[in-house]
């Protein structure tokens, strides 16, 4: 009997509807968290795993020593490296390709790299429409690294104490 009366009371006073409207009203007046991408962007962690880049030392020498650890560790077999001995006796890559279609952005390449040469940057806004350009060659990766070096260096510095 009591339950029946409670139900009738709720039904005729529209109490639950009003409760709902109160919540709606609260959010209506609250500060909005929606980001208007692409005009606005969310903050990104320094550990973000986006587009790859090959880095250079300050003097301009490429960091990669063609140790092939990234190629070996890559779970998607996305990296292809060929190397040879350069005239000065050091080992350098002649080919460093990452197939961005194969890549699963796990970050193992970055983790395995003994010289911090291959890194994943904050950049994630890129797309490919066909298969050819999806392969990032050594030149493209180095150029990308040069372009974003300040950001990359900053991110590594922030993360250094946890590594």
């Amino acid at each position: 009997m009591l339950a029946f009366l409670k139900h009738q009371f709720k039904t005729f006073t529209l109490l639950e509807l009003l409760k709902g409207m109160v919540i709606t009203g609260k959010y209506f007046l609250k500060k909005k968290i929606t980001v208007r991408y692409p005009e606005e962007k969310t903050p990104i962690s320094p550990r973000f795993r986006g587009h790859h880049a090959l880095r250079r030392y300050e003097g301009g020498e490429e960091r990669c020593i063609a140790c092939k650890l990234c190629e070996a560790v890559c779970p998607a077999n996305a990296i292809t490296i060929e190397f040879e001995q350069r005239d000065d006796g050091s080992r350098r890559t002649t080919q460093y390709d990452i197939d961005m279609f194969k890549c699963i952005y796990c970050g193992f390449c970055e983790e395995s790299c003994p010289t911090d040469a291959i890194v994943e940057t904050r950049v994630f806004e890129y797309e490919f429409h066909e298969r050819g350009p999806s392969i990032m060659t050594k030149d493209k990766l180095l150029d990308f690294g040069d372009k974003h070096e300040s950001q990359i260096a900053e991110d590594r510095a922030v993360d250094a104490k946890y590594r």
Binding site: A66, C67, A72, F83, E84, Q85, R91
Partner: peptide
Amino acid sequence: YRYSARPWE
């Protein structure tokens, strides 16, 4: 053989 391959390849 120097710098021509890595053993796991």
